[in-house]
Computed example of a mutant assay.
Amino acid sequence: MLENNVQVAPSILSADLGHLADELASIEGAVYVHFDAMDGHFVPNLTFGPGVLAAVKEATQIPVDAHLMISNPDQMVPEYLAAGADIVTFHYEATAHANRLASLIREKGAKAGIAINPGTPVSALDAIIEDVDLVLVMTVNPGFGGQKFIPGSLRKLRQLKAMCDERRVSPIIEVDGGISPATAGDVCAAGARLLVAGSAVFGKENRAEAIRKITEAGEAGLTRRA
């Protein structure tokens, strides 16, 4: 589960949706394509629904990492699973039934992920850490692309990695927000392995080179693991 490797998941939030198939083709070889679903309520932005996710699945063979920034994940998770999501990540802050929701996702054959906002402590994951395949640490406040990385996120990543080691579990540790070659090394040194990058990939002419530079920066960070 990416335990010893650094991977980049380009976020289509920063892609040209008018040429979605071409944009997806430009990141061929990526381990996941990151799909940000926002409802305009849990976060102050409105993006994609299950129909767009189904279109992404038709346009690419890259597995889809669906990040649900929505207020009603208990109701909507089945829709995203039906649309073909390979990972479904919901927010800890959005449900009172995290364990049940993670079990549902796994029962349907997808990986279950849980995300925490910058203001949510890692300790909130104590009762769920053994029941998920992925933990997403938001390194910006969710809702919009192009934000600056929050430095305090590094402390949270170290705390999360320590919790996982203590509990002898190894979920994928993912980060989302402000990720670029300048920040990739630090987050990987702190424990992250799956790096969501939007403008740092789709804002570049050569997407393969952009992914390579982020990956190399992340791998360099492993040599100085915090």
Results as ranks from 00 to 15, higher is better:
D22T: 04
R225G: 03
M76Q: 14
P121L: 12
A190M: 03
L136A: 07
A190K: 05
P10Q: 07
D176C: 06
P181V: 09
A189K: 14
M163L: 14
A55P: 13
N45L: 00
E23G: 10
H67F: 00
A208D: 08
A182W: 13
A83H: 06
N99A: 00
D22H: 14
A30Y: 15
G203R: 10
P181R: 09
G178N: 06
R168V: 09
A208K: 15
D176R: 10
A66P: 04
I128G: 11
A66D: 08
D36G: 07
A226L: 06
E93L: 03
V140F: 04
G145A: 01
L104P: 11
A127I: 01
L134H: 08
A208P: 10
A189Q: 11
Q147L: 06
D133S: 09
G29E: 01
I172P: 11
K156H: 10
L20R: 14
R167F: 05
A190H: 12
D165K: 11
P181W: 13
K204W: 00
A9G: 03
T183G: 02
N206Q: 03
I150C: 02
E209I: 12
D65K: 14
D186A: 04
T139F: 01
E58V: 00
D16H: 12
L104F: 15
E23L: 10
A208T: 08
D131K: 15
R100M: 02
M1H: 14
A66L: 05
F48R: 12
L13T: 08
V196K: 09
A37N: 13
L2I: 03
K204T: 06
L154T: 12
